[in-house]
Design a protein around this nucleic acid. Structure first.
Lengths: 126, 126
DNA sequence: GTCCGAACTTTGCATTGCAAAGTATAGCGG
DNA sequence: CCGCTATACTTTGCAATGCAAAGTTCGGAC
């Protein structure tokens, strides 16, 4: 059990996995979620607007955490790296998203509470 | 303009403000959003499940970024620190949330795309 | 007057994100 | 054949930062 009881700390959001909760990695996970067949290094770089170095590093982190599977092979004769979400990666990302969604909902509710701009956020529409 | 054109990098999410995008600080911002009248140091500590040291540090960061207003005073004769969101803080948090919401929506859509668990996430219900 | 606890702040360390430089190979111009 | 640029990554170095442990200050309780 977490050191700080969740009942007493409703805003601790300790389900926010450190490995996933990172700007760049969030983009990567989302990209990979949208492309379950896998994506090439260059594609990810483009999609997430990352430099080669950063992408390499973040992929390494995700791989070591077992969230993505990185396959280094050759396309013709040039190196070609492909990445896919692992089963665990997908599951953990969904867990993460559930927490994130709760956060957005909490904040949106709080934002709505006090007059002013009632629905700056499109969430919770219906 | 950002170095990487957003058109070419749909998953860069570069609207995710570094100062806000941090587990602990996210909790703080959400707490403060829910309590526009302000919260005491001890309250925040409890709500977010933070240690004294971490709370102090994060509040300092948020204050220096102009997102929260920290008022150090005395309640009776003991020190008493109160925190409120600034106008800019509220605005920037809402901006942040909008991006976050887009991310959750992107990911949820991607998750739904390929059979399996169709609505693990409660978002996009209707 | 000393012990304890509340309410913070400061310090130190170990992690980590990021960018610049490095490696390797393919393809092309001359 | 010999550079030269481009592609496809990896490695390195540094500066920032989150976190916990220790420090500080002050107010009662005893």
């Amino acid at each position: 059990m977490p050191k700080t009881d969740v009942n007493n700390a409703p805003f601790s959001y300790d389900g926010l996995d450190r490995v996933i909760h990172e700007k760049a990695r969030l983009g990567l996970m989302t990209s990979l979620m949208a492309h379950p067949k896998g994506l090439a290094f260059a594609d990810l770089k483009q999609l997430c607007g990352l430099t080669d170095g950063n992408l390499s590093r973040h992929l390494q982190v995700l791989q070591e955490a077992g969230l993505v599977e990185v396959t280094k092979g050759y396309e013709g004769n040039r190196p070609h790296t492909t990445c896919r979400l692992t089963k665990a990666g997908r599951r953990r990302f969904l867990d993460y998203l559930a927490v994130l969604e709760r956060l957005v909902r909490d904040a949106a509710k709080a934002a709505g509470k006090e007059g002013a701009a009632p629905s700056r956020l499109g969430i919770l529409p219906a």
